[in-house]
Design a protein around this nucleic acid. Structure first.
Lengths: 224, 224
DNA sequence: GAATTTGTAAAATTCTTGTAAACAACCTCA
DNA sequence: TGAGGTTGTTTACAAGAATTTTACAAATTC
């Protein structure tokens, strides 16, 4: 079942949408303001986000920006009132995928939601799996045996780098350059520390790794 | 981190794409016209090039042609406006890898970029074989009768040196200089020790080597 | 057959890696 | 702001692996 997060300060509208979603087979999650909405977006990792443009505190634009800043690619629809001043282009530029102008029919909204979900899931199935681990690159979620696993930013970045370069030896320097970038110059041993943690979190038996292998004298090799 | 060069005279679009790339973990490089773009393409050696078809001066087609004339295999995507007259076939013939028609969503562009990078990074598998041994230079894997063989760093380096210099006598000093480098000065007998191990691991009968031959008084010769 | 060179196992040494723990930087929430 | 938590980085050291050296037997050359 797909989760849709609704962030809107108008409680009546929020509930209406929530009910509609439920009836249509989605799992709705509701948030009354931008701040708590953002938090839920990051922790809950919904499949789609609906966010009102105009809200006290964190508005829709801000929420959208911050979601994208967290490298989440969750499809996001902005709800805007008819009188709202807003720049469609800017909206899309900061990472919103679509917008709907109030008042809208539930039918229309639903169609948009479905279309967006379809689009963003078919564009690229961005889920890769190895061993007992699944990685959803779009939602930035990592599951082990179906259970949500918390990876830190560095761990996740390292993981995706491994995923992009399977089955070939990667030197610590390659890894540092690609994952950490040229700006920071951490010790090459830093890589080891993170590999250890990836093993502890992702390998069935971290003492006998089957996916994150060391190539003695060279670096590491990821085997899906 | 991968560098993407964006060549477009429309500064707004250029910047939008640049920002998007940055957010998605690429290092963007921007050029406002074909001439400077071409220059950057040649000096910067980006991982991918996005070039607008219609530009004053050097247009996208010209840029593409010249990049290919320089024997660069950098993946290249052409951006074209919806009304632009252009011949898709010709475009691909002169070496473009893909094209996207404006207006396009950042998601779509991104998907194309990723797909293309993935496609072109799959490098030709460089495999050499001799006797019952196969060496995969990209994966750094050595197979004997199809079975994975574990070589240490020194052994592997020595092996690749032999592979690069088949059928000619190599003195121990040449080998030391090329494989060990000028920094370390091990005893020349070290070479012998490693040749022994290569024979043991790679020869069908290490007592009657057929590939790693000794040239008495000189050194060794590799015969594929 | 003497002198030299090579093969080879095993010892000695040096390097690399795994890992925990210390430390630093950075959020976040009151 | 500042206490407390989280994440990232460095360090230290043990364990293990690889490399180099050594010693002596075997082979080769003249």
């Amino acid at each position: 079942m797909q989760t849709v997060l609704v962030i809107d300060d108008d409680s009546a509208l929020r509930d209406t949408i929530g009910l509609m979603l439920e009836k249509e087979g989605f799992r709705p999650a509701l948030a009354a303001d931008g701040k708590s909405g953002l938090k839920q977006a990051l922790t809950l990792k919904p499949d789609l986000i609906l966010v009102d443009l105009k809200m006290p505190g964190l508005n829709g634009m801000e929420v959208c920006k911050q979601v994208r800043a967290a490298e989440m690619k969750t499809p996001l629809i902005v709800l805007s009132a008819i009188g709202d001043e807003f720049d469609k282009v800017l909206l899309l530029e900061i990472g919103a995928d679509d917008y709907v102008v109030k008042p809208f029919g539930t039918r229309e909204l639903l169609a948009r939601i479905r279309a967006l979900l379809r689009r963003s899931s078919s564009e690229e199935t961005r889920v890769v799996a190895f061993g007992e681990v699944e990685v959803d690159l779009t939602r930035r979620v990592v599951l082990k045996k179906g259970e949500d696993l918390k990876l830190t930013r560095a761990e996740y970045n390292l993981l995706t780098y491994f995923l992009q370069n399977p089955d070939r030896p990667l030197t610590r320097d390659m890894i540092l350059n690609s994952v950490w970038g040229y700006e920071s110059f951490p010790n090459t041993r830093t890589v080891d520390a993170h590999v250890v943690r990836l093993r502890q979190k992702l390998e069935a038996d971290s003492n006998a790794p089957r996916h994150f292998l060391t190539v003695h004298g060279v670096g590491y090799r990821f085997l899906p």
